[in-house]
Design a binder for these strands. Structure first.
Lengths: 191, 191
DNA sequence: TTGACAAGTGGAGCACTGCTCCGATTATAC
DNA sequence: GTATAATCGGAGCAGTGCTCCACTTGTCAA
């Protein structure tokens, strides 16, 4: 890559990081270009779609989360490991619209983000399987359920500050819902 | 109201219903005006904000849901009543972006939608309280938790058709998470 | 050191958006 | 039939995503 191209690439990424953090995933790309002191053409040359830009911003973190999941696979308590990973996942909210972007990549195989978080999803899938094998999580839960619900909690947190403050609590409810249940609806009534 | 104004009001609402169902809450208002065969000025005269338009589209349904909640207050099994209401709530997905719009109204007291669904939220709050009094739902859950989680499930369903197909299932997990828990994390490990 | 030239740049331009404004129109009351 | 206030419609403004291409510039062989 030519040296000026490399410089611009870095400038764009840096500008995008700031602006996306402030305005969310729907930030104006013109604003990004402006802040990077670069033309629209240059921005689109380096990042042909908005998603490509977001993917580059997120890639490192996805890899780190995948690694974290891999490390937790050997933890003593599989359920606690799963819970820890989910908390870690949710603790990092770089911008509004992340949850939505992540859900969109599930069905869009072409998307840059799809490939980028595939490894992460696989790794957390193994965490889930371990928790199920140990009998701590309901067997009918699959990793799509898990991913959808944790993103749902993330989405709620994006909606308002007072909801973000409840994130831990909501995740707790969801985790309890995924955990193996001793009672069914009928026996619950008898308590 | 002048007769031509009344006619245009109805035309706009009818057009909005169709277009919002197709394009979601972010539908182009120009499209709505075009379909209603009305100028932009006319549309904005009747509905000064996009929210005002959505609110009018939703109002009837909110009232019906509030009534349904009120009716369920005398049900025999409070938990089943709550579950039934939540299922009813989720069964009606008039357009993409509804969940987000509803969450936004929570913090925005000025919004037309805020007033419009206040009664509904109060009614379902009473359903929740009954289920808690009967010991079927954890006492620490409040109606904001409930509203947030049910909207989160609704949001997930908006993201992809195969996720919409899991709506019942996801709601089930969430409901089990809100239900009174017999076991804590330690005892779960022993099973 | 100097061209040659591909690689890279930047911004004008198009079609769209939300929203405002105001001259033209029209339903209605007298 | 006319006065007039209510209503209408679309031009216009500032913004958006994205494309296109004339121009500039870094690189490298001569």
């Amino acid at each position: 890559m030519r040296s000026d191209a490399e410089r611009n690439y870095a400038r764009i990424l840096s500008a995008a990081k700031t602006i996306v953090a402030k305005q969310g995933a729907q930030a104006s790309l013109r604003d990004v270009a402006r802040r990077a002191e670069v033309g629209m053409g240059t921005l689109y040359r380096h990042f042909p779609t908005r998603e490509a830009l977001l993917e580059t911003l997120l890639r490192d973190r996805f890899e780190a989360l995948a690694a974290k999941a891999a490390a937790l696979e050997s933890a003593r308590d599989p359920f606690a490991a799963l819970a820890e990973w989910l908390r870690e996942f949710l603790s990092w909210t770089p911008f509004r619209g992340l949850a939505s972007a992540l859900m969109a990549t599930l069905s869009d195989q072409e998307s840059a983000l799809h490939a980028s978080c595939h490894a992460m999803r696989q790794a957390v899938g193994r965490l889930l399987a371990r928790a199920q094998e140990s009998g701590q999580v309901r067997p009918e839960v699959d990793s799509l359920d898990l991913f959808a619900l944790v993103n749902a909690v993330g989405w709620v947190s994006e909606q308002a500050p007072d909801l973000a403050a409840r994130q831990e609590r909501l995740l707790g409810f969801v985790l309890d819902g995924l955990a193996s249940q001793q009672d069914d609806a009928d026996s619950r009534e008898c308590r």
